[in-house]
Design a protein around this nucleic acid. Structure first.
Lengths: 183, 207
DNA sequence: GCTTTAAAAAGTAAGCT
DNA sequence: AGCTTACTTTTAAAAGC
C-alpha cells in the first residue's frame, strides 16, 4: 500500500586515495581513461560491474558517480585502488568515503495538478516554469533535499546524503499533498 | 567638504546614467516586441524596485532589464517566452531566466506559471483569426485544464494546439505549420498536443 | 560562473529515413 | 510519421580558470 517504488538511481561519493596522482601515467595504463588538462583538471575513467564513473585528480582525491547504491560505491572504489596498485601506484589504506549526493525516483501513483500544488505549497517555496521544464521544483529543509514533482505523480529526489533522506523527502511531499487534498 | 559633494554628484550621475540606460533598454526591447506602454511602465517599476533593493550588484543592467520586462509581460497577462525576450536582448535566454528567478524571489513577485490562455489573443491575431475562434480556443483550454491536460506541458504548445482545433471547428482552418510558426513551437508539438486534446475532450476533427 | 561525471522525471526539438 | 539522439531541471564533489 505504501508502495511508492522508491529507487536509488545514482550515488555520488568522494574520497582521497593517495597524496598525489600522475594522471598522465594512469591515462597511459588504463584503457579508456580520458585526460585533457585544458578541458578539465580531472581524469575520467569508466568501470563496469558495478557500473560507475570516476573523476581522478592530481591531488589524490577521487569522485565516484553513477553507482546504483552505497555498497557499490565502496566496492568500486576498492576495485579502483586495486587497479592502481596493479600498475605500481600505492594507495591509502583506509580511505574515508563520503556520500555527497543520492538521486532517487519514486511514484505517488496519482495524477497531479501542478498549478494547485504550486499554490498549496506556496509560490515563494517552489519553482514551476512549464515553459522551461515540466517538473515543479520543491526544496525541503528537513531533510535537506530537492524534489522534482511531475504531473504524472512521479518524483525525483536529489541532494540527499543517505537513502533515508530520500525516503523522508518522498514522505514529506506525500503528506503535504495529502493534507492539502491534492493526492 | 567639496570632495564629498563631488563624490555624491559622481555617484548620482552614475546612478542616473545607469537608470536612463536601463529605461532606454526597456523601451528598445518593448518596441521590438510591440508591447504596449503599460507593460513598459510595469517593467520600469520592477526595474526600479530591483535597483532600490540593490539587486543589480553582480548582474548586468541589460540582464536585469530583460528579466524585468519578462516579469512585466507576465504580470500584465501578455506573456512573451524567454526565447522571445532573448531575441531582442544581448543577454542569453539562460541568463535572463536565472535573473528572473532571482528578482522574482527577492521582490516576492509570486507569479503563477504562464497560462496558455494568455497566449491565445496574440497567436490568433497573428493568424488573423476572429474573436469567435479565440473564444473557442479559450473554452478548449479551460476544459483541458479541468482534465489535467496542461500540467507540465509548455503553455505555448497547448495554446497552439487549442487554436489549431478551434480554427477547424470554426471553419477557418489554419495549417499546423502556420500555427506552429506563430506560436514558436514545432509541428510535432502541435500534433502531439492536439491529438491528446481531441481524444480526451472528445472533439471530432474532420480534415 | 564554467568545465566534467551520472541519473531519473516529461516535454520539446532536430535530424534522418 | 516515427525513431533516435539530445537538451531542459536538480544535486554534489573535485582543481583551475
Amino acid at each position: 500500500m505504501t508502495d511508492y517504488n522508491i529507487k536509488i538511481e545514482n550515488v555520488v561519493a568522494s574520497t582521497k586515495l593517495a597524496e598525489e596522482f600522475d594522471l598522465t601515467k594512469i591515462e597511459a595504463e588504463f584503457e579508456g581513461a580520458e585526460y585533457n588538462k585544458q578541458k578539465f583538471p580531472g581524469l575520467v575513467y569508466r568501470v563496469s560491474n558495478p557500473k560507475a564513473a570516476f573523476l581522478v585528480f592530481t591531488s589524490g582525491k577521487v569522485v565516484c558517480t553513477g553507482a546504483k547504491n552505497v555498497d557499490d560505491v565502496h566496492t568500486v572504489i576498492a576495485d579502483m585502488a586495486k587497479k592502481l596498485n596493479g600498475i605500481g601506484i600505492d594507495t591509502l589504506e583506509k580511505p574515508d568515503i563520503t556520500v555527497q549526493n543520492i538521486v532517487a525516483s519514486a511514484d505517488l501513483k496519482a495524477v497531479l495538478n501542478l498549478n494547485a500544488i504550486a499554490i498549496g505549497l506556496g509560490l515563494e517555496n517552489i519553482e514551476y516554469e512549464p515553459e522551461q521544464f515540466p517538473g515543479l521544483v520543491y526544496r525541503i529543509d528537513e531533510p535537506k533535499v530537492v524534489v522534482l514533482i511531475f504531473s504524472s505523480g512521479k518524483l525525483v529526489v536529489t541532494g540527499g546524503k543517505s537513502p533515508e533522506n530520500c525516503e523522508e523527502g518522498v514522505e514529506v511531499v506525500r503528506q503535504q499533498l495529502d493534507n492539502m487534498g491534492l493526492l | 567638504r567639496l570632495r564629498k559633494w563631488q563624490r555624491r554628484i559622481r555617484v548620482s550621475n552614475a546612478t542616473e546614467r545607469n537608470l536612463a540606460f536601463a529605461l532606454s533598454e526597456l523601451d528598445r526591447m518593448a518596441s521590438a516586441l510591440g508591447l504596449p506602454r503599460t507593460v513598459r511602465e510595469t517593467a520600469a517599476v520592477v526595474y526600479r524596485k530591483a535597483v532600490d533593493k540593490n539587486l543589480i550588484r553582480g548582474r548586468s543592467i541589460e540582464g536585469v532589464a530583460a528579466a524585468a520586462l519578462y516579469a512585466a509581460c507576465r504580470q500584465c497577462s501578455v506573456p512573451r517566452t524567454l526565447d522571445e525576450i532573448g531575441e531582442v536582448s544581448r543577454v542569453s535566454r539562460k541568463e535572463i531566466g536565472r535573473t528572473y528567478r532571482f528578482i522574482s524571489r527577492e521582490l516576492s513577485l509570486k507569479l503563477m506559471p504562464t497560462s496558455p490562455i494568455d497566449y491565445v489573443p496574440r497567436f490568433c491575431s497573428g493568424l488573423s483569426l476572429k474573436g469567435e475562434v479565440q473564444s473557442r480556443g479559450v473554452e478548449i483550454l479551460r476544459q483541458a485544464s479541468e482534465k489535467e491536460l496542461t500540467s507540465g506541458r509548455g503553455p505555448t504548445g497547448v495554446a497552439a494546439a487549442a487554436i489549431y482545433i478551434a480554427s477547424i471547428l470554426c471553419g477557418e482552418r489554419r495549417t499546423q505549420r502556420e500555427v506552429a510558426d506563430v506560436a514558436g513551437v514545432t509541428e510535432v508539438t502541435i500534433r502531439n498536443r492536439y491529438k491528446e486534446l481531441a481524444e480526451e475532450l472528445d472533439i471530432e476533427i474532420i480534415l
